[in-house]
């Protein structure tokens, strides 16, 4: 038995230590930012903080929560996440059902499927997209954050693959009992596919919460920014020229502890749904899989 050889025992010890170090390496930057956000301003400015807060205080979080621009962008993010996810789920749910049918039951399915898939492999690029958004009059509106990405082909395919696994007998029984397809979808398929839909919802929510470029590109009024765009502008670009704010606020926002607090709050929702994510994303990965 190789488990009992001394070489393997030595290897196991080093392997476990190495794995632990790598695991820590993956979260340590976040821990550092958390420590800074909970430290006193003077300690943070003097670069004394490492991985544990110095002179623990919640001051930076209070300051962040009193910043009206931060709060409006937080609200915008919540709104886009809820509205955007609801719309994406509805569209995917409706489209996945007919697309999951056999070709014999729904002629034209293949054509539709290609219309969907083609958008995954080819796109017109950023500039034409920008011009289209301009001409649609969506510039600087809330809807520009929700409508362009409303159809998520990847999630639709995930749901489609799930629908394929639903026993045919259920659908046949419903149809024989006189239910139409729409009714079958909502009465039979909806309850069965709730776990799958929850998975899609989590994926879609994370996508919306993290998405920042659309806000930067199409929205010019900082009070309409989603949180990710706000963070991008204030923390990453450090460009606050577009925001009309007082010098005191400016000084406040650029404090290291406050910046860190904003990063932590921005990451918090993802950290909260992370246990659910971890449970489900493996299912998402089997989207394209080696089939018999």
């Amino acid at each position: 038995m190789y488990h009992k050889t001394w070489q393997y025992r030595v290897f196991t010890v080093f392997n476990n230590i190495g794995m632990a170090l790598i695991a820590v390496l993956c979260v340590i930057p976040l821990v550092h930012v958390l420590a800074v956000s909970l430290s006193a301003k003077s300690a943070a400015d003097a670069n004394l903080v490492t991985f544990w807060p110095i002179e623990f205080t919640l001051e930076s979080y209070k300051k962040t929560m009193n910043n009206p621009l931060f709060l409006t962008s937080l609200w915008n993010s919540v709104l886009r996440t809820v509205v955007g996810t609801a719309l994406t789920l509805l569209l995917a749910f409706l489209a996945a059902y007919p697309l999951s049918k056999e070709n014999s039951a729904f002629r034209g399915r293949t054509i539709y499927a290609w219309v969907f898939v083609f958008t995954m492999i080819f796109n017109g690029g950023l500039v034409p997209f920008y011009v289209v958004i301009q001409n649609l009059g969506l510039m600087n509106t809330f809807w520009v954050l929700v409508l362009p990405g409303a159809v998520n082909v990847w999630l639709t395919i995930l749901l489609l693959n799930f629908f394929r696994g639903v026993p045919k007998e259920l659908e046949e029984a419903a149809l024989i009992d006189g239910a139409g397809h729409l009714r079958t979808l909502f009465v039979i398929y909806l309850p069965i596919s709730l776990p799958a839909i929850a998975t899609l919802a989590v994926f879609s929510m994370v996508g919306h919460w993290n998405s920042w470029f659309d806000g930067l590109l199409y929205i010019h009024t900082p009070s309409k920014y989603p949180l990710a765009t706000y963070l991008q502008t204030v923390i990453v670009q450090r460009d606050i020229s577009s925001m009309s704010i007082s010098p005191e606020d400016l000084q406040l926002m650029s404090q290291m502890t406050v910046t860190s607090a904003q990063i932590i709050i921005g990451a918090l929702p993802i950290l909260l749904v992370y246990p659910f994510l971890q449970k489900y994303f493996v299912k998402g990965l089997v989207l394209g899989s080696v089939k018999e």
Binding site: L94, P98, T119, P128, V132, P148
Partner: peptide, 22 residues
Amino acid sequence: FHLMILPSLIFLIIFNYIPMAG
């Protein structure tokens, strides 16, 4: 079936296929 796909199709045409024409 066509009706169920229609909403998604409209979105795809506006936000994916029209930009391709661009």
